[in-house]
Computed example of a mutant assay.
Amino acid sequence: MRALAYGVIFDLDGVLVDSSAFHRESWRLVGRERGFEMSDEFFWRTFGMPNRQILPMLFGNGLSEDAMLELSERKEEVFRSLAAGRIRALPGAIELVRAVTAERLPIALGSSTPRSNIEAILAALGIRSDFTQIVCADDVVEGKPHPEVFLKAAATLALPPQDCVVIEDAVVGVDAARAAGAACLAVATTHAADKLRHAHRVVPDLTYADTALLRSLIDSNRNAPATV
């Protein structure tokens, strides 16, 4: 009997790379330029959300759409400048991506990151060609914890979300994966493991994961009793 198909959807920041320090510093520098401050608590609470969701939380209704777009683009410009030549893959990340592609499993990236950042990071890691499907902040209306990014990523793989496993590091990302109906593997790279306990499995990093684990999480999710 042929095995059922399943897909793997990777987040980017905190899963493939830890770019949180560059994001934190870029917000600090842009805040100094523009006269605002972002607390560490606010940064970590909103980490994994797109800028268009973060900025209204930071400024309320005090910014126009054009001003938010300009500020977002400036922040990402500073981020790319800080990260250029300094981005490194997290432990086990490249190996798991390569294992997934070696088995010819459907693979996608689902991230709140702008496409320009994704392209630069994947190229720097040498894995751009592994991801034929990318759904990013530019492709969705709703940010995490809304499931839109993962629903669209599953659709690009021509699979229902129940046949996919999402790999996430952020609380809002785990919430989004579960809301989509996908299995979720969380890596405790940017958040403590106890904050991610609503994932199907939590591991310290991707050296603890392989394709057998991913398949088992999907099978468990498929076979879980329906909730009312």
Rank of each mutant, 00 (worst) to 15 (best):
H200I: 13
L12A: 12
P50N: 09
A93R: 00
V135R: 06
I121Y: 00
F47N: 14
G31L: 01
V8E: 13
T113N: 11
D219P: 00
L90H: 09
G173L: 09
A67F: 05
V149Y: 04
T207D: 03
D139P: 09
H191I: 08
E77G: 12
P147Y: 06
Y6I: 12
A137I: 02
V166A: 10
A193Y: 11
Q53N: 07
D13W: 00
V8N: 14
A120V: 08
T101D: 05
P106N: 15
F47S: 12
T211P: 04
S64N: 05
L217T: 10
E148N: 07
G48A: 10
L16I: 06
T227K: 09
P91Q: 05
K75S: 10
I121D: 06
Q133D: 07
P225T: 03
L109V: 06
G31V: 01
M38L: 11
C164G: 09
G60A: 04
V8D: 14
L29Q: 15
D40W: 06
G181M: 13
A224R: 15
R28I: 10
E76N: 09
I94M: 01
A102I: 01
L109Y: 07
G14A: 03
D205Q: 00
G35T: 03
R98E: 09
G35C: 03
E65R: 13
A137H: 11
G85P: 08
A212R: 15
E65K: 13
W27F: 13
E25F: 00
D194Q: 15
I118H: 01
D130P: 02
R28F: 09
A170Q: 04
F42A: 07
R34T: 06
R115T: 11
D139R: 07
A83Q: 02
A93C: 01
M38N: 06
H23D: 08
R86S: 13
A179T: 07
T190P: 05
Q162F: 08
H146G: 05
I9E: 10
R86M: 06
T132F: 06
F150S: 05
L29G: 05
L157G: 07
S220W: 08
L213N: 06
N61G: 15
V30P: 02
R28N: 11
V166G: 04
G48D: 11
S220E: 14
G110F: 07
H146I: 06
L125Q: 11
M68C: 10
R201T: 13
P114T: 10
C164W: 01
L71F: 02
S39F: 01
V174G: 03
I121V: 15
F22K: 05
L16M: 08
A170W: 01
N51K: 07
L4R: 15
P160T: 08
F42L: 09
V172N: 14
E142P: 00
D163G: 10
G60I: 01
E73N: 12
A84K: 15
L58R: 00
V135D: 03
R52T: 07
S81K: 09
T113S: 14
S129A: 14
L206P: 02
L151S: 02
P91M: 07
L213Y: 12
P161M: 13
D205H: 06
R24Q: 09
D194G: 11
L96T: 03
R222K: 14
L105D: 08
H146N: 07
G35L: 04
A209R: 03
R197L: 13
V166M: 11
R52F: 14
V100I: 12
V203D: 04
H198R: 14
A93D: 02
K195M: 14
M57V: 00
R52W: 10
